[in-house]
Amino acid sequence: MDRFYVLLMGFLSVVLVNNFVFTKFLGTCPYLGVSRRIDSAFGMGLAVTFVTALSGTLTWLVDYYILAPLGLEITRYICYIVIIAGAVQLVEMYVRKFFPSLYDAFGIFLPLISTNCVILGVCLFINIWGTDNLLEVVVLSTGTGIGFAVAICIMAGIREELILADVPVSFQGAPITLITAGILALAFMGFAGMIK
């Protein structure tokens, strides 16, 4: 029961309190680029969750069982990048073969993901947090992806309404999106006291 509690708290922490978009600014590029419509934002969020869960776990395994015992930490970043690129490729092939309709829905997002900072960010932060338990790693990396999905879906919902608003010409597009994101970050700060 105690362990379950820790896992649940960790999950809520990465989804709400330490949301990567609002507190660590990771994944801002797709956050501004693909948040025009809810369905595409949802597709992006789903794809990111998929890949973060996979690559977060894989990089942790490689780090823990191969790099650390052999003292090869110096090649860590290069290994991470290769693993992430491989994971994205794998997911793309798998989805294309078994879920063609989902593949069409993902479209261009899948290859784009390999340069999404959320994913490398998860791998690096799991390393910095010093997690040493496979289950925790899986929960944290999935939670981070879900946090990104939640953030991008909220933003897409707001932007669909924002089309009707009378925004000054020079503030249309990215500037107003950034200011909206700032207000959202302020709202998400309300969760800060929830978990110690």
Partner: peptide, 13 residues
Amino acid sequence: PVGAFVTLGILLG
């Protein structure tokens, strides 16, 4: 984080 988002937004505008 609020300051970062809003300042960058205003600068872009």
